[in-house]
Amino acid sequence: MAALSDNLLIVTIMSYVVAMLLHAAEYSFGGRGVIAKAAAAPARELVGAGGPPVVEESPYAAPPAPAAPRRRINAELIGRAAAVVTAVGALAHVGTIATRALAAGRVPWGNMYEYVLAVTLLGVAVWLVTLWRNPQVRHLGLFVMLVEVLLVGVAGMVLYTPVGPLVPALDSYWFVVHIGAVATSSSLFLVGGAASAMYLVRSGYDAGKRGFLYAFGARLANAEAVERLSFRLHAFAFPIWTFGVTAGAIWAEAAWGRYWGWDPKEVWAFISWVVYAAYLHARATPSVKRSVTAWIAVLGFVTMLMNLFGVNIFFTGLHSYGGLD
C-alpha cells in the first residue's frame, strides 16, 4: 500500500505538470494568444523550415486565412485537455492519500508531508469546482497548477516521511476537526490567492502596464470577474479558518492546559487571521482600491506559507509534528 501510494504520487505530480504545460500552451497558442497575434504567418514557415517542404497533415500547412480560427479551436481544446488532465491528477492524488491512509490505518494528515498533500488535493478540488461553475476563468489554471506543482513537488522531494503511526499527542478527535478545517480553508485561500494574483496581473495590464508579468494579462479573464471570485473564495474560507483555529484552541486547552499560548504556529495563525480580516475590511471599504485589496490577499497567503514551511523548519514549538529533523 505504501509503495502504491508513492507511485501514485509520481502520477499526480506528472499530471499536474502536464496540466500546467497545457494551460501554458493554451495561453501561448490561443486565438488572442501572443504567438497567434504576433505572427500567424511565420509559424507556418517555421514548421516548413526544418521538415519536408509541405506536410499535408500538419495544421500549420493549412492556408493562412482559416489558420487563426482553427488555432482558436485548438486553444479551446488544449484548455479543456488541461482541465481533464487536472482531474486525472486529482484522482491519482486521491489515490495517493487513500492508500497512504490505508497503509497507516488513520487519517492521512499526521505529518507535514501528508498535510501538504491533503491541502493541495483540496486546493485542486476547489479549483475544479470553481472551474465547473465559472468556465471563463480557466486561465487561472496556470496560476493554480503552478502553485500545486511546487507544493506537491516540495512535499514529495523535501518533506517525504515514511508511513508511520501517530504520536499520542495527536490521538484526539480534535485532530480530525482542527486539521480538517485548517486544510480546507488553506486550500480555499490557495485558489483565492491565485485568483488575486491573476487579478493583479490583469488589472495591471488594463492599466497599461506591459512589464514581464503584466504582458501576460492580455489573455486573462475579465479582471472584475476574477476579483469577485477571489473575494467569494476568501469570504468562504475565512469562517472555516476561524473555526479551525478555534478547534485548535479547544484542543490545546485539553492537551497543553491553555487555549492560547503564543506558540510560533499559533502566532502565525493569528497573523494570517488578522491579515485576512484586514482583507475583508478593505474589500468592504469602497475607497480602498481593489488592487490594494488583492495585494492584502496575496500577503495573506504568504503568511499561510510562512506558517506551513517557515514555522515548521526554522522554529521549534509545540506544533512539531512535521516529521522533519
Partner: peptide, 9 residues
C-alpha cells in the same frame, strides 16, 4: 482600523 490591524500582525 486597517493600519492598526497591520500593525498588530
Amino acid at each position: 482600523a486597517l493600519v492598526l490591524l497591520f500593525l498588530l500582525a
